[in-house]
């Protein structure tokens, strides 16, 4: 295969003495749709948060697009990344949060245009045009002038997805995008993500408990346990013929739960 767009090389992450991730090796190819599953506290969110530069690392190297994310090359050696480097790297990534994290003081439209205008320097018209295309994609054209507080959870999360896409990232990270939603609203959000999954060039890394959905859209499923990949494979392999005892137990618990 060609060089991966994401590569974790022996990455370590600890909070004080508590090691969350230890010597993690993890690769994602360009355009690949990867789903991470695993028990609570196994470090799934941490992996996404490290990629989104919300959380630093304590060892190893993370590469995004072949360049170190948390380091910079300086005179042949690796030094911790400056804010400038992080800002440059971040342009490749977008994230969708479990709790949506929309800006409550801005209209839906403004949620989508603010960063493109302020961060990317797009003109007002250009940003608006981009926002309208995205609202079309997520089916919320008629909600453009409402505030997040006036929308249902499912609608809010669709705005959250559109907001991240407005920055045109190469990689989209989803951290349990449907976990905070009432069951009847999950479908509308999954439909949007399904559309994105059909895009050949977009790389997606998603943490989810929606096993059926993971099976449907993923190229690869990784089972995380205790901060490392315990088992991985195509959805078919992992869900139908899991090799590891621990994976079988987990799947049995969530599928019957």
């Amino acid at each position: 295969m060609s060089d991966p767009i994401i590569a974790f090389d022996k990455v370590k992450k600890a909070y004080g003495h508590f090691t969350v991730i230890n010597e993690l090796n993890f690769e994602v190819q360009r355009g690949e749709k990867v789903t991470i599953i695993g028990p609570s506290g196994s470090g799934k969110s941490t992996v996404l948060r490290i990629l989104m530069t919300l959380e630093g690392i304590n060892g190893g190297v993370v590469y995004v697009g072949g360049e170190p994310l948390w380091h910079e090359r300086l005179n042949g050696s690796m030094v911790p990344a400056s804010e400038r480097h992080l800002r440059k790297m971040r342009t490749q990534l977008g994230m969708v949060f479990q709790q949506f994290n929309l800006f409550p003081h801005m209209s839906v439209l403004r949620n989508l245009t603010e960063a493109p205008r302020v961060v990317l320097g797009l003109s007002k018209e250009k940003a608006r045009q981009r926002a309208e295309e995205l609202l079309e994609l997520v089916g919320l054209v008629d909600q453009a002038h409402k505030f997040p507080g006036q929308l249902s959870g499912g609608q809010q999360q669709r705005v959250g997805i559109a907001r991240a896409l407005a920055m045109r990232p190469k990689i989209m990270l989803f951290d349990e995008p449907t976990s905070a939603l009432d069951p009847e609203l999950v479908g509308e959000v999954l439909n949007v993500i399904r559309k994105l999954a059909a895009e050949h060039d977009l790389t997606m890394v998603m943490v989810t408990h929606e096993m059926r959905f993971a099976r449907e859209i993923s190229d690869r499923v990784c089972f995380f346990d205790k901060g490392r990949i315990h088992e991985q494979g195509t959805p078919e392999q992992l869900f139908s013929q899991p090799k590891e005892q621990r994976t079988r137990e987990f799947l049995k618990a969530v599928l019957n739960g």
Partner: peptide, 13 residues
């Protein structure tokens, strides 16, 4: 803090 995280993810200074 989640507002600051969202802002960071969108690359605001």
């Amino acid at each position: 803090p989640s507002q600051y995280e969202a802002a960071r993810a969108l690359n605001f200074s």
